[in-house]
Design a protein around this nucleic acid. Structure first.
Length: 349
DNA sequence: AAAACGCACAACCGCAGCTGA
DNA sequence: TTCAGCTGCGGTTGTGCGTTT
């Protein structure tokens, strides 16, 4: 028993198509159409499998195909649809005139996936990495969380490094433009900016970059002292990343802040890093030496508060006019680039 | 200059669903 | 209802070319 092969394996050519073969196939299909792929190679005088002919036609020879770069709006469409339907390439391609499922799939695998990963967004779930960590934390006991969050971040490390080593990266912590203590909690969040240019890396710099990524993510998640927060109080990780963020921000309008449970924030809180002698493996690894001390100095981490002047966000305005949403940890429209729309909070898996 | 590496794209493979006898 | 054949789909691999070392 066994599956009947779609064509006789011997006597069938494989590999790259020649222009002559393309011509034969095109002219045959132009005359007779695409009915019965099994007969087409035979009738067209091609030593190819019918399947191979179909693929060549649908992915390359079809006259209505668009060749060349994907536009910004096409990329947005792919990202949007992928967040909803997953790897249903044919479905996604159907919304992009002139593009094939193979085109979309290749573009996703070579470009878009890396873009999203580089922004700290899981390309499978379309959730920020911190959201995934939060989910891990909400389902596991604290001792396990540290190891699993470390593992989760590890999944992104390669992609991040890939991006970061090609683009200069500046880590900075945003402060209110007036120079006065921040009132908007987003002033305390890490801002990662990249500009084009070659990042001249060394091993130390690369390691330093990893440490900074970890620190940035964890600090964003640990903005508040856990005891002072309700368990599902929203917070926002803010990352700016050049053109990738534009695409992604455009794809994800109708924002919705993601939730970081207090359990995880406690676990990742800078106040519990290696410096206090009671840090988890995660915090020890990301909060080493001068990095931790410097942040501590800047943002008053003593007592678990990651920044100055954030005590009373009761609907006032910041110095630069940014509205603060009463009762939340600040929703800053100028800065939030990757909050999720409602319909993506429960993505199809 | 050449080898190694990375990337993008093309093509292949095998499975699943559909269709018609 | 069953089953063989066909088609479509998604994952994976192969290949050629440009870049880096």
């Amino acid at each position: 028993m066994g599956r009947i092969p779609c064509c006789e394996k011997d006597n069938v050519k494989k590999g790259q198509w020649t222009p002559e073969e393309d011509n034969k196939l095109s002219s045959y299909i132009a005359q007779h159409g695409t009915r019965n792929w099994r007969l087409i190679p035979k009738n067209a005088g091609l030593q190819r499998c019918g399947k191979s002919c179909r693929l060549r036609w649908t992915n390359y020879l079809r006259p209505d195909l668009k060749h060349g770069e994907f536009s910004e709006s096409e990329e947005q469409t792919i990202v949007k649809l992928h967040s909803v339907v997953g790897n249903r390439w044919s479905l996604i391609a159907a919304q992009l005139p002139g593009r094939t499922d193979n085109d979309v799939k290749n573009h996703w695998n070579t470009k878009l996936k890396k873009k999203l990963s580089g922004m700290g967004i899981d390309p499978v779930t379309h959730k920020p990495i911190s959201h995934l960590m939060a989910e891990i934390a909400s389902t596991l006991a604290p001792p396990q969380v540290a190891h699993l969050t470390e593992a989760a971040l590890g999944c992104f490390k390669d992609e991040m490094l890939h991006l970061l080593t090609k683009k200069r990266i500046n880590f900075q912590f945003e402060h209110s433009s007036s120079g006065t203590p921040a009132h908007d909690v987003t002033d305390c969040l890490p801002l990662i900016t990249t500009t084009t240019g070659i990042y001249n890396k060394s091993n130390n710099e690369e390691e330093d970059t990893i440490q900074k990524i970890k620190l940035s993510v964890s600090r964003a998640m640990a903005m508040q002292e856990p005891n002072s927060l309700p368990s599902n109080k929203p917070c926002t990780l803010m990352v700016s990343n050049g053109e990738a963020s534009e695409t992604y921000a455009a794809a994800y309008n109708n924002t919705h802040p993601f939730i970081v449970p207090a359990a995880l924030r406690y676990h990742l809180s800078p106040s519990s890093c290696g410096n206090d002698g009671d840090g988890s493996p995660w915090n020890r690894s990301m909060c080493t030496g001068s990095t931790c001390v410097g942040v501590d100095d800047q943002h008053q981490l003593q007592g678990g508060l990651p920044c100055k002047g954030e005590d009373d966000n009761d609907g006032e305005e910041t110095g630069d006019g940014k509205a603060i949403q009463k009762g939340t940890d600040a929703i800053n429209a100028d800065c939030i680039l990757w909050d999720l729309p409602e319909d993506l909070m429960n993505p199809v898996v």
